[in-house]
Design a protein around this nucleic acid. Structure first.
Lengths: 355, 355
DNA sequence: TAAATATCAGCAAACGATTTCTAAGCACTT
DNA sequence: AAGTGCTTAGAAATCGTTTGCTGATATTTA
């Protein structure tokens, strides 16, 4: 097995010492001196690439930023990843991604692994609060940006989506369409139980970080502004899948409560809801309007196409890298809140007063 | 800034030498001896984590496998990634992912970057043949598995999808539905031109690696078996997006040739095709049947739901890691071909003989 | 009991880079 | 012409880990 070419090889080839080679490579000798030219020619010829591990050991930057995601199969998170990669590459940095495939145990393994790695900084999208993260010394020595969740790890800069506004503008839009009986589907990765007292969860500070709760806060705010009392029987718990949406729609119809609109926690759930309603001959948008979340690929493709909250997941990624690059330069940074918007399509329509 | 805790710290704390600590950690001293117990207790107490960079410098394994993907926003590739992560974690290895966001330039940068990193091995899903890869010494010193493409880098083990069979079974199924006039939509990341002489491309050996060409080979084989002559006017070039599908359907209808079935290069294109046809009042599946590719999330969600070729992208990922782990153990490995299957849904139906 | 062998922990040399230190070389001043 | 200051490049130390070597101790054998 042929060895990698090292600085020593370059030095011998250029008839200088290794220290000189190092200095040329790091730009401490201006490139137009004859000695630098000779060295650069040798690196070129031998196809020399510096060894990142050795550099890292001397406390140098490696140009590598780690990203930990909860689930690489989820388009929201791959959006973050794509944004991060784009921005990092624009700045000649590289991203390495570790995914925990939805499990907190795997997330801890990812943390353990990256803590032995050669990172300049870490962009961390945590599934949940996590003692492993807090006790790893390595992560106290490199800059960390928390993405996607807010207020989950204290004292770290964070980039998150304005989910309160998301819930708010979706609800507001429903109300503008004259739809007052609005189901709120509370999305959970792992539902704690079948029915939940959302009001209680919202007021308990410990639970402050669930994105679902933020959306619910927005929902409450919009109702309040219009003077509509909150009706707990309009809240249903769901997971984030198409099937889950189908099932919860069945459940809603089975209760035979009056429903004019449904807010889904993502587009997959929305499409499952729509599928069940259509099968039952309930027209979407005319009888019941549906709003999704994520504004993903499937929103424009479904029929009817789905009105959805756009979360700008790519922007979460790019902004996280921006913050990271600033931190690496030693600058102070501020939290960044990514704005949301409503993409209006065919799954929502004005409700004429019922006969 | 507090320093990371090193072996030296552990050694001092346990009153032994660093070499002893190293041996305990690497299991060269059995864990039940008193000295080992003392060392382990110290590592525990001090929260010691070995430094991967230092280990790597001594030629040790780091437990890290790199994966280079063309596009992290594409569900097919994130399927590969998810499979790879799952299998790697089962074996206490970790995956780091680098995505080139579809550009060959970025792919080269990813290669450059990972070639300075601390990998035990590389799983490489190349966009195209690539001189950078071949000239990096580092990749000659570590095991490499080529995924998703076949025969693009000689002499490396590979894991790829049986696209010939994919094209074949899709076409066969169309024929069984009595549909003989089958459009083949040739998917390209970056279409070389508007219309293409597929027969010429297939016979030119240089082009052997395009997945689209393999699917076309399967298409030809199925036609031939049924004695149906190949009609080049049934081939259309397309990209991989929903819009591209919509546009190509428009183009097909504009030519007013007789079409009974359409084979799309992925589900997005299929859904775009269906959208246009439905808008024109052309019934899918009755007038024209459509088969997609990928069997992705959107296939069951679309209406009508899309009959699609399932590529098992997760299996590409898991098998790639299996091969890699064998290579790391020094075993010989064989190429692995991932099987495909047809998921039948509502976008295809039997064609009654036309009046 | 003494000699031969096995076991084991510590010393020190790597691994490939960066960086401090050092000494040589040079131009200038007086 | 000797002393001063400055630049420059090489020698050597260093980062945290692994490992061959060594000498000391423990165990076995005659």
């Amino acid at each position: 097995m042929k060895k990698d070419v090292t600085m020593k090889d370059v030095a011998e080839h250029a008839n200088v010492s290794v220290s000189t080679v190092s200095r040329v490579i790091n730009g401490k000798i201006s490139a137009d001196t004859p000695i630098a030219k000779a060295v650069l020619k040798a690196t070129e010829k031998l196809n020399y690439r510096p060894n990142a591990a050795a550099r890292f050991m001397k406390g140098q930057r490696t140009g590598t930023i780690g990203v930990i995601l909860p689930d690489i199969a989820n388009p929201f998170f791959t959006g973050i990843a794509a944004g991060a990669i784009t921005r990092a590459q624009e700045n000649n940095n590289n991203i390495i991604i570790s995914s925990s495939n939805g499990s907190i145990e795997q997330e801890k393994k990812s943390l353990e692994h990256l803590s032995r790695s050669v990172l300049d900084g870490l962009i961390y999208c945590p599934i949940a609060r996590n003692e492993v993260f807090e006790e790893i010394e390595y992560f106290k020595n490199i800059p960390v940006v928390i993405s996607y969740r807010r207020d989950i790890i204290p004292s770290k800069p964070q980039v998150y989506v304005d989910n309160i506004k998301g819930g708010y503008i979706a609800t507001k839009y429903m109300l503008r369409l004259n739809r007052k009986r609005i189901c709120f589907l509370a999305g959970f990765w792992d539902p704690p139980c079948d029915s939940i007292d959302m009001l209680k969860m919202v007021s308990s500070p410990e639970a402050g970080f669930y994105t679902t709760l933020d959306r619910f806060r927005g929902y409450l705010k919009a109702l309040e502004e219009e003077g509509i009392p909150y009706d707990p029987s309009l809240v249903f718990v769901t997971r984030y899948s198409h099937e889950s949406g189908y099932d919860v729609a069945k459940e809603i119809i089975a209760t035979s409560i009056d429903v004019e609109g449904i807010l889904a926690p993502n587009d997959l759930v929305a499409s499952g809801v729509i599928k069940f309603l259509m099968e039952q001959g309930i027209s979407v948008p005319h009888n019941i309007s549906v709003i999704g979340y994520d504004d993903s690929l499937i929103a424009p493709i479904s029929s009817p196409s789905i009105t959805s909250i756009n979360q700008n997941s790519k922007e979460v990624g790019t902004k996280s890298v921006d913050l990271m690059l600033d931190l690496l330069k030693g600058k102070k940074v501020k939290d960044y809140v990514v704005d949301v918007s409503l993409s209006i399509r065919k799954s929502t329509s004005f409700l004429k007063s019922k006969n």
